[in-house]
């Protein structure tokens, strides 16, 4: 039984009322087993980011089914869906997307703000995760006082602080130089070896090598799967 199941997922966008329709995804099916590390590859506009957002419970598909841990994700109410995202999904967005006015530690604590955990517990947890991603000692810096690689580590720490089973990453190394990219990919591999299921969107062949499996997507359809 797969942790994540996508069945014939299609997504159609409409530019404004009565505007032109665009098929971002047309009948994509994908299975991700627990503990897998998958690289989603494809040219820009192929629908890979759309697929990732659908996987993450952020973007309801026009048709098809998404099941994660046997939960039919898009049958949940909007508020339950938010709870689901908090429990199951860790997101690493493009461009890190840290909150600029919160320190590294506070950014990591952000998902804990809506849990019942006490302040001290939140702090300890966030500190432990920051250490785990290799960013001890820079807890009190604001995002703009950190390098790209460091910001990426904060973003990853924020994604995993709630201990979700699934990590979704959208072009995690897009803004990083080659050497930093490699460090970040090493971190991903390390987290995956710890049991985290990872789905990563990338157009970088080098990054894809770290994944156990590569899924190619083109014009809204999954064209090949290897690994």
């Amino acid at each position: 039984m797969s942790l994540i199941e996508l069945r014939n997922v299609a997504k159609e966008y409409r530019a404004g009322a009565g505007g032109t329709r665009t098929m971002a995804l047309s009948g994509a099916s994908l299975d991700v087993a627990e503990g897998e590390f998958i690289a989603l590859m494809g040219p820009s506009g192929s629908g890979k980011s759309t697929l990732l957002s659908i996987l993450g419970g952020l973007n309801p598909p026009t048709s098809g089914e998404v099941t994660i841990d046997t939960i039919p994700v898009y049958q949940l109410s909007q508020e339950r869906l938010a709870d689901f995202r908090r429990e199951y999904i860790g997101f690493v967005f493009q461009q890190f997307q840290l909150i600029p006015y919160l320190t590294a530690l506070e950014n990591v604590m952000l998902p804990l703000a809506i849990t019942r955990k006490k302040q001290d517990e939140q702090r300890e947890l966030a500190e432990a995760v920051l250490t785990r991603v290799g960013l001890a000692g820079k807890h009190d810096r604001l995002p703009n006082q950190l390098s790209g690689g460091e910001q990426e580590r904060v973003a990853i720490a924020r994604a995993i602080v709630n201990d979700p089973p699934v990590l979704l990453a959208d072009e995690p190394t897009g803004a990083l130089d080659t050497r930093t990219s490699e460090e970040i990919m090493d971190l991903f591999r390390f987290l995956n070896q710890d049991g985290l299921t990872i789905v990563m969107v990338t157009h970088n062949r080098e990054n894809a090598r770290y994944a156990g499996k590569t899924v190619e997507i083109r014009d809204g359809s999954i064209t090949s799967s290897s690994g």
């Binding site: 909007q78 938010a82 709870d83 689901f84 967005f93 909150i99």
Partner: peptide, 16 residues
């Protein structure tokens, strides 16, 4: 907008 999108993406409810 983006910031609020992040809040929602990491599991904040509308009420949060």
């Amino acid at each position: 907008t983006r910031e609020i999108g992040i809040f929602r993406a990491i599991g904040f409810r509308k009420s949060h």
